[in-house]
């Protein structure tokens, strides 16, 4: 009997895991954005002293994990699992970081939904009493993502207005079976939803239906309403996707307009920073959650948050073969103790 299951896709934890600490490292551009004061470390050079963008991303992820563990007053050896993933082929940046860290490692891939996916799985491990401490982490890097998914950096082409800017950044959260801090009480695991969008320059529109499906399912499964949250935040739908998601959820009968925002819009000032539609990438929801949201929760300016990281499950092969872009979204409910 799955006694912790609630409705179709939601789990309610019996012993809600605590997020005892988080850490973030971001690139220079993110460090010029509106959330700059929330990040632990802002790189001045996004090559981070390494020889390639991929290694720089890996180092960023590794150092973020170390920083999060340190802030939680723990040691690397206290960590029983590391749940992590990134956007690069075969999870290069996480696997190489895991090699250096020596924490038992479970690699995951949910594209930019990685943060919520690792928090979900981590919470189940903790609530299931399989571990007392673990780290959930993910990263993305503008330059490593560009060369894998799009064009070389020096190519003189134009980005379309619906295109998003991959966040250079990594966010890590330490989950514990006990301790002080915001707790994860529910998770809603999303289904892959694809409404046939093929435009790789319009990821927000491709992922919005998945976010809508997961959020609506979360409301139905738990009985919560938008009013039960201080903030419902999607991962990287950016300006186009956010509007679509808000409209579509409105059509189902939930008015989220007062509490809804998107990490891709929070992290950059689209006008000033010329990011077009907004931020994207695993690092987008990871740094916004582990930086801004977690710190605001600690200050008790936010108390009830639904983090819905969104992922576009395409590959360069699938889009070259003319396939549409499948989307996914996972929801994690995080609350402060009252």
């Amino acid at each position: 009997m799955a006694i912790k299951k609630l409705g179709k896709q939601t789990v309610q934890f019996k012993n809600p895991p605590t997020i005892i600490s988080t850490a973030t490292i971001v690139g220079p551009k993110e460090g010029e954005g509106p959330l700059r004061s929330y990040f632990d470390r802002i790189l001045t050079d996004d090559l981070y002293g390494e020889n390639s963008w991929e290694l720089a991303e890996s180092k960023m992820l590794r150092e973020t994990v170390k920083a999060a563990i340190e802030k939680g007053d723990k040691k690397i050896s206290d960590m029983e699992y590391m749940l992590a993933g990134d956007l690069l082929n075969q999870l290069m940046s996480t696997s190489f970081a895991a090699r250096d860290l020596g924490i038992p490692f479970l690699g995951i891939y949910g594209a930019c939904s990685n943060m919520a996916e690792s928090l979900s799985l981590g919470s189940m491990l903790i609530d299931g009493e399989y571990a007392d401490y673990l780290v959930a982490v993910t990263s993305s890097h503008y330059s490593s993502a560009e060369r894998q998914y799009r064009f070389p950096l020096e190519l003189g082409n134009q980005r379309s207005l619906s295109a998003q800017w991959t966040v250079t950044g990594s966010g890590a959260a330490i989950l514990a079976s006990k301790g002080k801090g915001p707790k994860i009480t529910h998770i809603t695991t999303g289904k892959v939803i694809d409404l046939g969008i093929k435009d790789v320059n319009n990821m927000g529109a491709a992922m919005a239906p998945a976010a809508v499906d997961t959020i609506v399912t979360h409301f139905k499964d738990t009985g919560f309403k938008p009013e039960d949250y201080d903030l419902i935040v999607t991962g990287d739908l950016a300006s186009v996707g956010k509007e679509i998601a808000q409209d579509m959820i409105g059509d189902v009968g939930y008015d989220m307009s007062k509490v809804y925002n998107d990490c891709g819009l929070l992290i950059f000032d689209n006008e000033k920073q010329d990011t077009h539609a907004g931020g994207s990438g695993c690092g987008c929801s990871a740094t916004v959650f582990c930086g801004y949201i977690y710190k605001e929760m600690k200050k008790r300016n936010l108390n009830k948050v639904l983090l819905v990281s969104t992922g576009a499950l395409l590959s360069t092969t699938s889009s070259q073969q003319g396939q549409s872009i499948p989307g996914i979204a996972h929801a994690v409910r995080i609350v402060n103790d009252v």
Binding site: S162, L195, I197, A205, P209, V240, I244
Partner: peptide, 18 residues
């Protein structure tokens, strides 16, 4: 049909090039 409707809806929401 659903995909076509969504595509038309997205087109209308997506900013046009300048």
């Amino acid at each position: 049909r659903k995909e076509r409707d969504y595509d038309a809806y997205v087109k209308q929401k997506t900013p046009k090039p300048t």
